[in-house]
Simulated assay, not measured.
Amino acid sequence: MTTTSPSIQLHRGDLPDDVSFHGTIAVDTEAMGLNPHRDRLCLVQISAGDGNAHLVQILPGTPSPNLARLMADRTVTKLMHFARFDVAILQHALGVTVAPVICTKIASKLVRTFTDRHGLAHLCRELLGVDLSKQQQTSDWGAAVLTPEQQAYAASDVLHLHALWAKLEALLHREGRRALAQACYDFLPARARLDLLGYEEPDIFAHRA
């Protein structure tokens, strides 16, 4: 384990045996691209909402059993932004069903219908007053050594999710859509499997041949 700052811990290959999580954790991923079949998973970011981030650098050809167990642990809720992609690439790379899941992007789309801006950076700025830098978003996440800037960027994507979810969940309750959001979240592992099978297009829910 390499500690790069007081709040960021980088683990190569897997979570250490002595790191455990309970309750709700924020989870994000970085990959070589946005196609789970073509592009390999490079990094998994985790935060318990305590101001600390654990970054697991995925090593090609090396299993990550502790990480896989955590993602499949149904007693631990995985809080994500755009969970459809994260769940798909995690399920494809780790060979597990990732559940239960919460997605802040789905929550935003259900209650913030007055805007089409549902990106993480916009939500953090709008709801939390936090400015996230996206400068490293398209950097090379497959590099053997991640720069301090990459690590800081990756950590920022999970460090604010708990606070963001608190704001969005309150809006879901206010608008009477919390149960609807939960139904969407419960379906996400299956939606990810459909994506991995190639059912993004045609959409099997669409009314067309």
Results as ranks from 00 to 15, higher is better:
Gln45Asp: 13
Pro60Asp: 09
Ala170Tyr: 11
Leu164Lys: 06
Phe85Lys: 03
Ala179Asp: 05
His160Cys: 02
Gly119Val: 05
Thr104Pro: 01
Thr138Cys: 04
Leu132Ser: 11
Thr4Phe: 11
Pro60Arg: 11
Asp116Leu: 15
Ala143Trp: 10
Arg117Glu: 03
Ala192Asp: 07
Leu55Asp: 15
Leu34Glu: 00
Arg125Phe: 14
Ala53Lys: 03
Phe21Arg: 07
Leu188Val: 15
Trp141Val: 14
Arg84Ala: 12
Tyr185Pro: 03
Ala190Thr: 11
Gly49Thr: 01
Phe21Ile: 09
Asp86Ala: 01
Leu67Asp: 08
Pro148Phe: 03
Ala154Asp: 10
Leu41Phe: 00
Asn52Leu: 05
Thr3Ser: 10
Leu168Met: 07
Ser47Ala: 07
Arg193Lys: 04
Ala170Asn: 11
His118Ala: 01
Ala163His: 00
Arg125Trp: 14
Thr113Glu: 11
Thr4Trp: 05
Arg177Lys: 01
Leu132Val: 11
Thr115Ala: 03
Thr2Gly: 12
Ile89Trp: 04
Arg12Lys: 10
Cys184His: 09
Asp131Met: 15
Val130Thr: 12
Leu123Trp: 11
Val130Ala: 15
Leu59Lys: 08
His81Ile: 07
Gly61Asn: 02
Arg193Asn: 11
Asp14Gln: 02
Val87Gln: 01
His118Tyr: 00
Ser133Ile: 03
Arg191Phe: 06
Glu126Val: 07
Ala121Gly: 14
Pro60Met: 04
Lys167Asp: 07
Leu197Asp: 14
Pro60His: 02
Thr4Met: 14
Met1Val: 01
Arg178His: 04
Leu172Glu: 06
Ala83Phe: 01
His37Phe: 07
Ala88Ile: 05
Pro60Gly: 12
Pro16Ala: 11
Arg38Phe: 15
Pro36Tyr: 03
Ala107His: 05
Asp14Leu: 02
Ala170Ile: 13
Pro148Ser: 12
Lys105Val: 04
Ala121Asn: 07
Ala53Arg: 02
Leu128Lys: 00
Asp131Glu: 09
Phe21Cys: 08
Arg208Cys: 15
Leu159Lys: 01
Gly13Leu: 02
Met32Ile: 02
Asp17Tyr: 09
Cys184Ser: 09
Gln57Met: 13
Thr77Ser: 02
Leu34Ile: 02
